[in-house]
């Protein structure tokens, strides 16, 4: 898929015929797509389609077994996760995207200090607190004791203050109250406006379509749709997701 207007810059993320597996279990089959630079791409699909796997493969948490992965035009196929992160890829994983056993400030410092000088990091910390006063109130509280919404704010605060080139967000709104979902999307919008490309894994299709310019649909580990969001009516999206996940092959 080629994105109009993205020819000038290399794509933020590009998958070329990528396969991935967990041990003996294949999770992705020949997945190819691009996330054009500066765009928001939503990755949709029913449960078990492989959405999280795409996110994990993109940041090197799960190794690909075939194909190539490019970040801003650079081949990162077999790079470890921390090197990919240093190329400017941030990943907010599913579930609890923070260190529960560290306090709020240590969570932020850990990320900032790995990217910035000591002085810049202190500065970044102040900006993060300015953007999320709630986190400032709880700076010495263990992140594990924050509410689910606050934890996700903390994860986004790290990204907002030092914008990466590409942010991969894995179901960041799962289990949140509608008001917190709004807040998460506001933060995502801010991150996009700061020039970061986004790959958003999402189950709340309408919310994703509000933000996304491009839509990818996965089913059973294969990419079945890749098109601009404007071409994807809400009805069609519902239809895509209403197809139940294929039963796991039980004949063995």
């Amino acid at each position: 898929m080629s994105a109009p207007g993205a020819e000038a810059l290399p794509a933020a993320l590009q998958f070329e015929h990528v396969d991935a597996a967990y041990g003996r279990f294949r999770a992705l089959f020949d997945v190819s797509f691009t996330v054009p630079s500066g765009s928001v791409t939503a990755l949709l699909g029913p449960n078990g389609a492989g959405k999280s796997t795409v996110a994990r493969v993109a940041t090197g948490l799960v190794p690909s077994t075939a194909g190539r992965i490019l970040v801003s035009g650079r081949d990162v196929t077999h790079q470890p996760a921390w090197k990919i992160t240093r190329l400017g890829v941030a990943h907010a994983p599913e579930g609890r995207p923070v260190f529960a056993s560290l306090d709020v400030e240590d969570n932020l410092r850990l990320t900032f200090l790995s990217q910035l000088s000591r002085k810049e990091a202190a500065d970044a910390l102040e900006r993060a607190y300015a953007r999320f006063p709630r986190l400032a109130e709880r700076r010495s509280q263990l992140a594990g004791t924050l509410s689910g919404g606050e934890q996700r704010m903390l994860a986004l605060a790290r990204v907002l203050v030092v914008p990466p080139r590409l942010l991969v967000v894995d179901e960041l709104t799962l289990g949140l109250a509608p008001r917190m979902v709004d807040e998460v999307y506001r933060a995502l919008r801010d991150i996009r406006d700061a020039g970061t490309s986004l790959l958003v894994v999402e189950q709340q299709i309408p919310r994703a379509l509000e933000l996304a310019e491009f839509v990818l649909v996965l089913r059973k580990g294969r990419l079945v749709q890749a098109r601009p969001a404007s071409e994807l009516s809400a009805g069609l999206a519902e239809e895509i997701l209403s197809v139940p996940a294929a039963p796991v092959d039980g004949s063995s």
Binding site: T59, G60, L61, P80, A81, W82, T85, R86, A90, H91, P93, P97, V98, F99, A100, S101, L102, D106, L110, T111, S114, Q115
Partner: peptide
Amino acid sequence: RAMAESPRMVQLAG
């Protein structure tokens, strides 16, 4: 201390 909880999250911190 971060490692204790999750080496993978440490990787994601770069």
